[in-house]
Design a protein around this nucleic acid. Structure first.
Length: 245
DNA sequence: GCGACAG
DNA sequence: ATCTTGTCGC
């Protein structure tokens, strides 16, 4: 487990954060198909919080894209650097996620985020932001609707309904990953096509509604948070609870 | 102005 | 995100 470091120049308020999004948005690459589903590595990232103590824990879990077997995992713990504001989630989650990703020894391959990519108020959600900062191909798979409504979609696994911007642009898709469950919301982050993002999501969810990447990352970051609360001060390393770094 | 609002 | 037991269903 590593200690989170907040990147230089991290925004201090909402106005600065929106300006960062508007500035970085142009760096998103939308002309690449991205990694082929089932080939190489796929990494899930997720974050858990202890609001009372202002603590955050992140996990990055690397899977073999073909077998979905765990290849490697890393966690990071530290203090929360930004409040939760709809549309600015990345500023709350990224410091922790970047720390966990940075602790990996193996190549992450495609990164699967909990949340949105382009289907965002300024078309620059968590997955797009992570992709731009790391250069890695990234997609967003959210559990709940956000700013874009969608029509009904079929009941079978693989059925979709588009998430459209006002100008008609398809920014994402509601995707049914299992029969009889609510859909997940897939959107492109960086260097991946929407078709490919949906194909990856389906492959990663052979049994449950959510992709194995997010299920595993969710489990690991919760464990890391519990461990940080249980075993606060690690002699020899900094204490994330007290913020001594 | 009011409500909605990823995690 | 997080607070939380039992319970319906495969």
């Amino acid at each position: 487990m590593t200690i989170i470091e907040v990147p230089e120049g991290w925004p201090a308020d909402e106005r600065e954060a929106r300006a960062v999004q508007d500035a970085l948005r142009a760096r998103v690459s939308l002309d690449e198909a991205g990694p082929r589903p089932g080939v190489g590595a796929v990494t899930g990232v997720d974050v858990a919080y202890d609001d009372d103590r202002g603590l955050v824990a992140a996990a990055a879990v690397v899977l073999d894209a073909e077998t979905l077997a765990v290849v490697e995992e890393a966690t990071a713990v530290g203090r929360v650097a930004f409040p939760y504001v709809p549309g600015l989630l990345a500023f709350r989650e990224l410091p922790a996620v970047l720390a966990a990703l940075g602790a990996l020894r193996s190549a992450p391959g495609l990164v699967v985020c909990d949340g949105y990519g382009l289907a965002h108020p300024r078309r620059f959600g968590l997955a797009a932001h992570l992709g731009v900062l790391t250069g890695l191909p990234a997609i967003g798979v959210a559990k709940n609707p956000f700013v874009h409504a969608h029509g009904e979609l079929g009941p079978r696994r693989g059925d979709t309904a588009p998430l459209r911007a006002d100008d008609g642009t398809e920014l994402g898709r509601a995707l049914r990953t299992q029969q009889g469950v609510k859909p997940v919301y897939v959107s492109v982050g960086h260097r991946v096509s929407l078709d490919n993002a949906c194909a990856h999501t389906l492959r990663l969810a052979p049994r449950y509604r959510l992709p194995e990447t997010t299920r595993l990352a969710d489990r690991r970051c919760r464990d890391a948070l519990t461990a940080a609360l249980t075993r606060p001060a690690d002699p020899g390393s900094a204490d994330p609870v007290r913020g001594v770094v």
